[in-house]
Design a protein around this nucleic acid. Structure first.
Lengths: 235, 235
DNA sequence: CGATGCTTTGAAAATTGTCAAACTAAGTGG
DNA sequence: CCACTTAGTTTGACAATTTTCAAAGCATCG
């Protein structure tokens, strides 16, 4: 009987935990832990939450701020693999490794909640399928950007990025069309596989076309529909 | 007491299941299932194992053959996201979704073993951390290729691909230096974000430099050390 | 043996990268 | 509070790489 109860959560197919939210994970873990509080950590702008090579074992839920994750090759080539905002998890990619495979750096003052994997497994074992779902979601996101960076030109990539960021910000309750970028042009270029000058030029051309308005890192999407059309017409 | 026993496997940290092998997963599941056999499926060359949009719920262990996975955007852009050989899992990226997010196509006659997620969870719940590790590993691989495609030129990308394939084939007991490509130049280009003509030219130049020998899809790595050096010197 | 699909190569065009310089904003120390 | 340093952005001109278009050569398979 007890066994059945314990297994129950595992019974629900991995394939359908309906849009798992990392924030949910955190609140459920906090609930299970009871009085024991979730450890929080504040990170200042430009500071690393963790570095490549440091020991793993904890997932970080972004509670506030804006982070970038970067990978480096043995010969020193570097690339930003993604930007994480409130509600996103950091550290997932290193699951199964003794040490982190990427750097996570705050672009802004940020706060993260620590979710030790050991605690998640012990106190919230039914979350494992959710973690798998989140990991799979990251793979699909990566594949999407791989597709976009290989089939879209500079202008389209930048447009796609702005639309994507707008959607993510909207999901957090911010404006979908008035964006404040937290990263430099070089960061954007790194993520989109472009040089920073090319990013600048793409932004200038989009602005010249009246699709967006650029004021430094403040970007207004003037004509989101036209932006989307420009991305879709892959040519 | 029973509870502890059930939880036992989950206690071992997700962070250190020491090089989980998909094949292991399969054999352990087969063992647990007892007389109930693992379903196998044969796929002919050019045939899809599954298509984007088809229902998920099963992981496929590649037992023989050579597969490619591809993603497509709403507007029809397409890209190969990876090649899978014996020992690799197919279908992981769609965990958490009701339907597949990619196509898996055999480049060769292949055989896969079906691992229904539901059975894995019910009969082998301790495998969930392993699945998480495998998913995280896929993310790291993707990031690595994102880095390579954005920082290496055509020749270097092709060289990196050949070296990578050689290593994977060696791990399967084949020669590390005598490769038989199972994909077309167009497939290679899709994966490496290059046009097929560029792939051909890169191969020709590497051959002209004496680093490899090209005979259609038969490739011999003549000077692997020099190949590696060429990839490392990112410029 | 013809048809089809794949590969190779050339030449020209297009996009992006590189280098350089000027400009802006922001922050620091006098 | 200003002058000054530094980091980041923008733009131009040119170079380099890759793409595009075209054509020819090679295989494979009914």
């Amino acid at each position: 009987m007890t066994v059945v109860t314990m297994l129950q959560p595992l019974r629900q197919p991995v394939a359908a935990p309906a849009a798992p939210s990392p924030a949910d994970l955190a609140s459920r873990l906090a609930e299970r832990l009871g009085e024991l509080p979730l450890r929080r950590r504040t990170v200042r702008a430009r500071q690393a939450l963790f570095h490549c090579g440091q020991p793993t074992g904890t997932l970080f839920l972004v509670h506030a701020g804006f982070f970038k994750t970067t990978v480096v090759s043995a010969d020193g080539r570097e690339k930003i693999t993604g930007f994480r905002l409130r509600g996103d998890l950091l550290g997932m990619e290193s699951i199964g490794l003794p040490s982190h495979a990427c750097d996570a750096v705050a672009l802004d003052t940020g706060e993260v909640w620590e979710l030790p994997l050991e605690q998640l497994q012990r106190h919230l074992p039914e979350c494992l399928p959710e973690i798998a779902s989140l990991l799979a979601g990251e793979i699909r996101r990566d594949w999407r950007w791989m597709l976009d960076t290989s089939s879209l030109n500079a202008e389209q990539r930048v447009a796609a990025f702005l639309l994507d960021l707008g959607e993510r910000l909207q999901a957090l309750g911010f404006s979908r069309h008035d964006l404040r970028l937290r990263m430099t042009r070089a960061d954007l270029g790194s993520f989109l596989s472009l040089q920073l000058e090319t990013v600048t030029r793409a932004l200038s051309r989009l602005a010249a076309s009246g699709l967006i308005e650029v004021d430094g890192r403040e970007i207004r999407l003037q004509d989101p529909a036209a932006l989307m059309r420009r991305v879709a017409l892959a040519a």
